[in-house]
Computed example of a mutant assay.
Amino acid sequence: MTCTTNFAPRLRAQGLRMTPQRNAILHVLHHSGGHLSPTQVYEQARKEFPGLTEPTVYRTLEDLAEKKLLLAAHVGNGKIVYELAENQHHHLICHQCGKTVEVEHAPLELLYRQLETSTGYKLDSSHVTFFGLCPDCQS
């Protein structure tokens, strides 16, 4: 299944068209297998779509994250990385070596519900990044 076939219906459901720029960006994220910075997305996507500009990549990533098709994760130092919003998870990041571990959402589900109940907020973002020292850096 191509990226266009896979993502076009989801884009249409959000009122968006599958443009060559969106296709190139989604293709990169789909095949990356992880999180990419906007610059990394730009550098890889312009190989497929040479006319792509960096501002277009930033704008498209923000638009797709706003439509919940991508997950934007803050990974420290003001950096944001993007990935497809296909599985809900969180991150543990070592602030010394930068090692990142994905954490399933299920163990935090109760905390999310408690926060909603105690504050009255309806949480619409489901990503948390925890920072600490990994086992290797603790020694």
Rank of each mutant, 00 (worst) to 15 (best):
M1C: 07
T2S: 13
T2D: 08
T2M: 07
T2W: 05
C3K: 00
C3T: 12
T4Q: 09
T4F: 12
T5K: 14
T5P: 00
N6W: 06
F7M: 12
F7I: 10
F7T: 02
F7S: 01
A8D: 05
P9A: 05
P9K: 05
P9Y: 07
R10F: 13
R10C: 07
L11T: 02
L11S: 00
R12M: 12
R12Q: 13
A13H: 14
G15D: 01
L16S: 00
R17T: 15
R17N: 13
T19K: 04
Q21M: 07
R22D: 05
R22V: 01
N23L: 11
N23H: 07
I25L: 09
L26Y: 04
L26K: 01
H27C: 11
H30C: 13
H31L: 13
H31D: 07
G33C: 11
G34H: 08
H35Y: 09
S37A: 11
P38E: 08
T39R: 11
T39D: 10
Q40H: 12
Y42R: 04
Y42F: 15
Q44F: 08
A45D: 02
K47M: 10
E48I: 13
E48M: 13
E48F: 13
P50T: 03
E54W: 09
P55E: 08
P55M: 10
V57T: 06
R59P: 06
R59H: 08
T60K: 00
D63Y: 12
A65R: 03
L69M: 14
L69C: 12
L69F: 11
H74T: 14
H74F: 14
V75G: 01
N77S: 07
N77R: 06
G78A: 11
K79A: 15
I80G: 03
V81R: 04
E83G: 02
L84R: 02
L84H: 05
L84Q: 00
Q88S: 15
Q88G: 13
H89D: 08
H89R: 12
H89P: 02
H90P: 00
H90I: 11
H91Y: 03
L92M: 09
L92E: 04
I93E: 00
H95P: 07
H95R: 14
C97F: 09
K99I: 11
K99T: 11
E102P: 01
V103P: 01
L108T: 10
L108R: 09
E109R: 12
E109Y: 11
E109F: 14
L110G: 00
L110C: 04
Y112P: 02
R113N: 09
Q114T: 08
E116R: 08
T117Q: 12
T117C: 07
Y121C: 13
K122V: 15
S125D: 04
S126Q: 05
S126H: 06
T129Q: 07
F130Y: 12
F130K: 10
F130A: 15
F131M: 06
F131Y: 09
G132P: 03
G132H: 04
G132Q: 05
G132S: 01
L133I: 09
C134A: 06
C134S: 02
C134P: 01
P135M: 13
P135R: 15
P135E: 13
D136G: 02
C137N: 08
